[in-house]
């Protein structure tokens, strides 16, 4: 569904992505994992056209993405943290995005599940971080996209809201939606993901079905498997100091 070929991206002297090629299977949930600063968000923004690669191509359903942005009609995006104009009401934010994406039938599931109708008139400035995240999720799923890109979607959500979101992810997947998701919570990804793409040091170290990764690393759980990948990565450079506490991958880190 999404094909990335030879993506290179630098910020000044810092290399964010180096020669990343990745095929995201249609109708599958692909988990994008890797330590902080490994390039996950850059990769996501490259797909969305927010960031433009120095080299390489991105294609969506076989069509290379362009600058016009019309292809994003088929994309839903939930950023790491939902920020909205402080003095707009919840309803105004939703109506604005509705109007920008005019002509698309909307999916009100999350709106109802999170009871956002009750705070329709409320200003964004009065919302808690969790509620903003709910609004962000509702907008991402609202336009029944063919591809959903979720950057740390559960961060900041309470367990109940988290459950609702995960449930919704499963249902859109069943409906044929392609999902790309990042998270630091491996157990969560284990529940949801079909495929896994592992980024480290700006390079794609592994991509394939979760089961294939478990098999290759001979680990029963995803968490152990990713740790094993990281260990192997730092082991390949014995002189390099260990950069990550591999036994205890950070589970939650907010900017």
């Amino acid at each position: 569904m999404i094909a990335l070929r030879g993506i290179d991206k630098r910020y000044g002297t810092q290399i964010a992505l180096h020669d990343v090629s990745l095929e995201v299977r249609p109708g599958a949930v692909t988990a994008l994992v890797g330590p902080n600063g490994s390039g996950k968000t850059t990769l996501i923004k490259t797909i969305l056209g927010l960031t433009r690669p120095d080299a390489g191509t991105v294609a969506l359903a076989g069509v290379p993405i362009d600058r016009e942005g019309e292809y994003r009609r088929h994309l839903g995006y939930m950023p790491q943290a939902g920020h909205f104009p402080e003095h707009l009401a919840v309803g105004e934010v939703i109506q604005l995005v509705d109007a920008l994406r005019r002509g698309i039938a909307v999916d009100d599931d999350l709106l109802h599940a999170y009871d956002l109708g009750a705070i329709w008139e409320k200003k964004v400035s009065a919302l808690s971080g969790g509620t903003r995240q709910k609004l962000s999720a509702a907008i991402a799923f609202r336009y029944a996209p063919q591809v959903l890109i979720l950057d740390e979607p559960t961060a900041g959500l309470d367990p109940l809201a988290c459950g609702i979101l995960k449930d919704k992810i499963r249902r859109v997947r069943q409906a044929g939606c392609t999902v790309v998701i990042t998270s630091h919570i491996m157990s969560e990804l284990e529940e949801l993901a079909d495929d896994i793409a592992f980024l480290c040091d700006a390079q794609l170290q592994f991509s394939g079905p979760v089961v294939a990764l478990l098999e290759r690393t001979k680990q029963p759980r995803l968490e152990g498997a990713v740790a094993a990948l990281l260990r192997a990565r730092s082991g390949s450079r014995p002189d390099a100091p260990p950069r990550y506490d591999v036994e205890n991958i950070p589970t939650l880190e907010r900017p």
């Binding site: 927010l50 009609r73 950023p79 943290a81 909205f84 995005v97 920008l100």
Partner: peptide, 10 residues
């Protein structure tokens, strides 16, 4: 951040 969200729209 809001601009990012808007830019993710068509």
């Amino acid at each position: 951040e809001f601009v990012e969200l808007l830019l993710a729209q068509p």
